[in-house]
Simulated scan of single mutants.
Amino acid sequence: MPENNKNLYYLDDLSGYKVASNDSDVRGWEIIDADNRTVGKVDGLLANKETKRVIYLDIEVDKSLIEDGHEVYNKSANEGVHEFVNKEGENHLIIPIGLVRLDDENEKVLTDEINHDTFAKTKRFIKGAKLDRNYELTVYKNYFPEKGGNEDDLKDDKFYDRQEFNR
């Protein structure tokens, strides 16, 4: 992917970018879903250079989530059609920063809006893969099926102005 079309960068890969001194660095923290189940651990922070802020948490998913995800795709076609099947080794996913809250005392990241089943059905990727807007749109539509709306609205320059990307 050409550099000028890239939207997301790992914070570790950007010189001069770091977690603000008044914010917690959540890398390595467990992420807990709306059902109070472990989703995985925060492996990285994804930033957008234009907005100069972290947009997503990169989650290395828990094995239980991967196993739940396999069950989803073992159902017959008449029980629902799926656009993709996660492949072996795809054990990371992203969550918009505005969907989490921090439990600093216990070093946990909590989401009250997304449950284990939704995470299990979310398209994952292999660590280090370049993430493009198509992947972001797939994840966004999975987390917010009611907001799917017009694809063009999701592709514009104001994509990150949504409340889901603000903390």
Rank of each mutant, 00 (worst) to 15 (best):
74 N>P: 04
74 N>R: 10
74 N>V: 07
75 K>L: 12
75 K>N: 12
75 K>D: 11
76 S>Y: 09
76 S>F: 07
76 S>K: 09
78 N>S: 13
79 E>N: 12
79 E>L: 13
79 E>H: 11
80 G>I: 08
81 V>S: 10
81 V>C: 09
83 E>S: 10
84 F>D: 09
84 F>S: 11
85 V>N: 10
85 V>H: 11
86 N>R: 02
87 K>T: 03
87 K>Y: 10
88 E>F: 06
89 G>V: 00
89 G>D: 04
90 E>A: 11
91 N>F: 09
91 N>E: 13
91 N>Q: 10
91 N>S: 13
92 H>M: 06
93 L>C: 14
93 L>Q: 06
93 L>S: 11
94 I>Y: 05
94 I>P: 03
95 I>E: 03
95 I>N: 04
96 P>L: 00
96 P>I: 04
98 G>Y: 00
99 L>E: 08
99 L>W: 06
99 L>M: 14
99 L>V: 00
99 L>A: 05
99 L>N: 11
99 L>D: 07
100 V>L: 12
100 V>T: 13
101 R>F: 09
101 R>I: 12
101 R>G: 14
102 L>R: 07
102 L>E: 15
102 L>N: 10
102 L>I: 12
103 D>Q: 05
103 D>H: 06
103 D>Y: 04
103 D>R: 03
104 D>I: 13
105 E>F: 15
105 E>T: 12
105 E>C: 05
105 E>L: 15
106 N>A: 13
107 E>V: 01
107 E>L: 05
108 K>Q: 15
108 K>Y: 02
108 K>P: 05
108 K>N: 10
109 V>N: 09
111 T>G: 08
111 T>M: 09
112 D>Q: 09
113 E>T: 15
114 I>C: 14
114 I>Q: 11
115 N>W: 06
115 N>D: 14
115 N>Q: 06
116 H>K: 14
117 D>C: 06
117 D>M: 09
118 T>W: 06
118 T>G: 06
119 F>K: 08
119 F>C: 03
119 F>E: 01
120 A>H: 02
120 A>D: 05
120 A>K: 02
121 K>A: 15
121 K>I: 01
121 K>L: 01
122 T>M: 02
122 T>W: 00
122 T>G: 02
123 K>C: 12
123 K>A: 15
123 K>R: 14
123 K>T: 10
123 K>L: 15
124 R>E: 08
125 F>R: 01
126 I>P: 02
127 K>E: 15
128 G>I: 05
128 G>F: 09
129 A>T: 13
129 A>P: 05
130 K>Y: 15
131 L>Q: 00
132 D>S: 07
133 R>V: 15
133 R>I: 15
134 N>L: 03
134 N>W: 01
134 N>H: 07
134 N>I: 01
135 Y>F: 15
136 E>K: 01
136 E>M: 14
136 E>T: 03
136 E>H: 09
136 E>C: 09
138 T>G: 08
138 T>R: 08
139 V>Q: 04
140 Y>M: 06
140 Y>C: 04
141 K>Y: 10
144 F>D: 07
145 P>Y: 07
145 P>G: 07
145 P>K: 08
146 E>L: 13
146 E>K: 11
147 K>I: 05
147 K>F: 12
148 G>Q: 12
148 G>N: 14
148 G>W: 04
149 G>A: 01
149 G>N: 02
150 N>D: 00
150 N>Y: 00
151 E>A: 04
152 D>E: 14
152 D>W: 03
153 D>E: 13
153 D>M: 03
153 D>I: 00
153 D>R: 00
153 D>K: 00
153 D>C: 01
